[in-house]
Design a protein around this nucleic acid. Structure first.
Lengths: 220, 220
DNA sequence: TAGATTGTTAATCGATTAACAATC
DNA sequence: TAGATTGTTAATCGATTAACAATC
């Protein structure tokens, strides 16, 4: 196989998918700092992974390095961008204009990486019409009709738990292919829709557990 | 060993820790719905885990079920609460009063589960003195002195990336035992401090990858 | 060339699952 | 009691790591 080619077609393991964004973040930093080469050993050192794991992860997607040299930062970054799908544009509709919704709507990084928030919806009549990041807030009742005319790739759910599944159903019926879920609800979707969860409460509970666990063991 | 006893002392695997909050969330729902018994098979069905995995996870901490019956919901919930450390109070200082900080400060669930936000800090002079969830916002320059007088268990970092490591260092020097990090920075901390990250950008990139991956394979 | 580092294979490690004796 | 379901052991599966031939 020639270098750069896409390789295996088996689903990429969870762990690899989890590490790709970490590589992306760090390579972006290196590029910004003007570093132009990096070895798997150096990457591993900086990110607390083994060098073997990094090489193994990257080899899922092709051969991006050179023996005796390592990886060219700019080139590897470009490859990781492509692997992540950042060479394409991504359209987003955002449901829920509370604090979380506002945080997402105003985070410039997304736009810089090709994610565009096309529309924002909320149920609160007081918010309707407000402009947020160049986007007028519409009433959530219009979501269904909006999606008929303006298909979107990603739906963001930043609503209370109670509303989440119903909104999810509307988004899926409206044709979104991925859901970014900030509510603590466990969403039911068809197999061909991808759900990525940000469960704040779960995260805090994991922290609480680790703190508690440490406390338990210190008692010995 | 008698039932309910704590068992092994090896560090609990990542995967188990990740699932505990899911069990907790679902058991809370069941209890609220007035369900009083549940089997590992039923839990597995609802949560997309195998029954064996659930029994295996729980057995890290003790024996909470009864052969031929299953688990008493209220009792198991109580046990999981204790395992997660929710029977104790947790004090929090929050740094960064932007949208994310506001979202955390105003989320009632935390308080209900024993997490108390003791103080909020920001660098913006315009925000200082504002009251948020019963908490006045202080200038971040006061953080160090504040922690000397009021030790806290958890520090939340909801600042821009650039400020994150410096704030983290102050929090750690001030004695916090855990960091809940919302910035995209990779934080360096001593071994005895626990970091739990919420990397929004990584999460969106994982979603983008899965969408892109599906697209690639559909082309065949 | 000599030194360095890749991509990959084989060995290891750990986590998940299947199976079942124990027993409510 | 008969039926059901636990907690745990052994088998399986998958992911990580170590090692090294290939080669820049």
């Amino acid at each position: 196989m020639t270098a750069r080619g896409r390789k295996k077609r088996e689903a990429v393991p969870q762990g690899v998918v989890g590490r790709l964004p970490v590589y992306f973040r760090y390579l972006t930093d290196l590029a910004l700092m003007g570093v132009d080469k990096v070895s798997s050993a150096q990457l591993g050192e900086a990110l607390d992974f083994t060098a073997a794991q990094i090489r193994s992860d990257l080899s899922y997607f092709g051969s991006f390095g050179q023996q005796g040299y390592g990886y060219n930062v700019a080139e590897l970054l470009q490859q990781v961008r492509q692997i992540l799908g950042l060479d394409k544009k991504h359209s987003i509709v955002l449901v829920g204009a509370g604090n979380i919704g506002k945080a997402i709507g105003s985070y410039g990084w997304f736009r810089a990486e090709g994610f565009t928030i096309e529309a924002i919806f909320d149920i609160d009549p007081h918010l309707i019409g407000n402009i947020h990041g160049g986007c007028a807030i519409r009433h959530v009742d219009e979501l269904e009709r909006y999606l008929e005319r303006h298909p979107a790739e990603i739906g963001v759910i930043a609503t209370p738990k109670e509303a989440a599944q119903a909104i999810c159903d509307v988004l899926v019926a409206g044709g979104v292919r991925g859901i970014w879920n900030f509510s603590p609800a466990h969403l039911d979707v068809p197999d061909d829709v991808i759900v990525e969860n940000i469960h704040l409460t779960d995260s805090l509970l994991r922290l609480a557990f680790r703190l508690n666990e440490r406390g338990q063991n210190d008692e010995d």
